[in-house]
Design a protein around this nucleic acid. Structure first.
Lengths: 144, 144
DNA sequence: GTTTCTATTGTAAATGAAATTCATTTCTGC
DNA sequence: GCAGAAATGAATTTCATTTACAATAGAAAC
């Protein structure tokens, strides 16, 4: 299996764009952990490691990472988008508490079938899905 | 079946809050159409009907509409959230083109079962779900 | 109906994520 | 090396959303 960096290099070459040390640094940091991330948090993580990367460089890279299928928007919370890896990581869905924001991850294999059915029916090239179930966690549902 | 306004009045009374003509006007406008909406578009719709409602009033109402189960976040696009009705309207999911933003709505009954399973397994009070399938539409997939 | 308490309103200002500008730097192909 | 194009960081701008605040107006108690 190719590494994320290899996938990105290939993608960037195909698009006639250029790879740079900054981009490699950002991608390395994103895939160093298995967790979700957001721009600000990623920026601070890079900063704390003395990597001088500007926020615009991160913002400019994200559309390419999305397009290359390495990451995906996970959810919008606290006023900004959160992303998750989709290459080389088992896809998962989110059960989220509308009150406290608690997130439980779960798998749902059936959705892959739904993807395929939609791809055929609407002639889409399907890249993935986002499935969020919303409600109130055990603690919060008691107070509502 | 109760109207949306009635549901809201009940909700507001239970919370010990106050109903106002402004809130009734906003709710009326939201449920006058069956479509998704976003704050800005709703604000302009009210304005064009000579209803003097400020944007903060809309922003302040939305958390209550979410909490009362009348609406739900549909998707984040073009830098802001879009909402959809969930009370008294058939739930639907979205197939979205990552390139041009085209949206196709579809139904998927099975997800209700997933909701129930999760509610039991994690002891959540499940209020709904968001299922988005992402990819490239027939037109866009040709250029990628 | 009047009073009192406090939630809600609109206006204006503040916040903060994301995008953009621009001068400078750095790839990449020739 | 050179030329042209793309990427960078710093600073600025944009724009959705939130907040502050003074004025208004529901709603419950009297």
């Amino acid at each position: 299996m190719k590494s994320e960096i290899e996938i990105f290099r290939e993608f960037i070459r195909k698009k006639g764009l250029r790879n740079t040390p900054e981009r490699e640094t950002i991608i390395e940091e994103i895939f160093a952990s298995h967790d979700h991330f957001d721009v600000d948090e990623l920026y601070l993580r890079l900063k704390s490691k003395k990597k001088k990367i500007s926020k615009p460089s991160i913002y400019r890279l994200i559309p390419y990472l999305l397009e290359s299928g390495l990451i995906q928007e996970a959810y919008f919370e606290d006023g900004h988008l959160h992303y998750e890896h989709i290459y080389g990581h088992e896809h998962h869905c989110h059960l989220r508490c509308l009150n406290c924001g608690k997130i439980i991850e779960f798998e749902e294999k059936y959705l892959k079938k739904v993807e395929n059915r939609l791809a055929e029916k609407y002639d889409f090239l399907v890249k993935g899905h986002k499935f969020e179930v919303l409600g109130y966690c055990p603690k919060c549902k008691a107070h509502i």
